[in-house]
Design a protein around this nucleic acid. Structure first.
Lengths: 148, 148
DNA sequence: ATGCGTGCAAAATATTTGCACACGG
DNA sequence: CCGTGTGCAAATATTTTGCACGCAT
């Protein structure tokens, strides 16, 4: 598989090993519609009859975040959650109702970002952005549990 | 003071009280160039000879986040940090070198955001964005501690 | 006066780490 | 084989909560 190959190659190049625990984390995140906590990930791995420990999940999440495959989400959440960085530059629409994440195909900032700091003498190297609101289904459900 | 008045009035209107502990948190955040952890805030309050407890800081941070005066930052940090929401709609340039936060006067998204989700049937109610990079000073310092 | 807010200490959560063994390259 | 990765359990760190008292309105 494309994706797996890429990951394997880059991982190896950096001196990291491709273990079943690391694959399991990526797989679980890939299958999830919304960002997961470390414990969520651990429980799902166990539920699939794969082995791992919470400590390993934490250690690997750190590694995966460092290497850029996973990003932290949780700007408006209580807990720290993680999701795949599917694309080197993707932003998401996040539903406050069902927590569903809908990736945007384009970056609303385009290349604008890099020129933004100019007048402050600031060199912008990146940005993170999440848009949130309500997806069609949640918008049209009368009573939404998660709406405050 | 303008700002204080505003806060007082809104707080009262919502049934919250304006206590010295809450003022202290806002004051400490206001004076800081970069986002602070709950413990940072607690220690700085103590350092200024004001009283508070860590539990109170946590409780009030929650209140202040709920009411929109403070926002969580920590997209690229290890720990959850808090900063003032100076304006109902502000974005910041965050220096990866010295952690300095430079507010942008305009929202790069403008009103674009609200139309972004349209084709997905998604109603965008808000967004959060942080731009990061290096401020002038850090860019021109040869060896930067915090650069990976 | 009333009830929200506070401090303290304890509890509950979340995350990290030491160590001996396992396994990928 | 070698060194990174893992599991377990213990150690830390972080956040929440019960309770009695205090203070803002």
């Amino acid at each position: 598989m494309d994706r797996e190959d890429l990951i394997s190659r880059e991982f190896l190049a950096r001196g990291y090993k491709v273990t079943k625990q690391r694959r399991a984390i990526l797989s679980v995140l890939d299958k999830s519609e919304h960002p997961l906590t470390a414990e969520d990930i651990y429980l799902r791995i166990r539920a699939e009859n794969n082995v791992s420990s919470l400590a390993t999940v934490y250690r690997n999440l750190k590694t995966l975040v460092d290497t850029g495959y996973v990003v932290k989400a949780g700007l408006f959440e209580d807990k720290v959650r993680y999701r795949l960085q599917n694309d080197p530059h993707t932003h998401n629409l996040i539903c406050l109702g069902c927590k569903k994440v809908i990736p945007l195909s384009t970056c609303p900032l385009n290349c604008l970002g890099e020129t933004l700091g100019e007048k402050e003498g600031f060199t912008v190297t990146g940005h993170k952005m999440e848009l949130y609101g309500y997806c069609f289904e949640c918008e049209h459900k009368g009573d939404q549990i998660n709406r405050k």
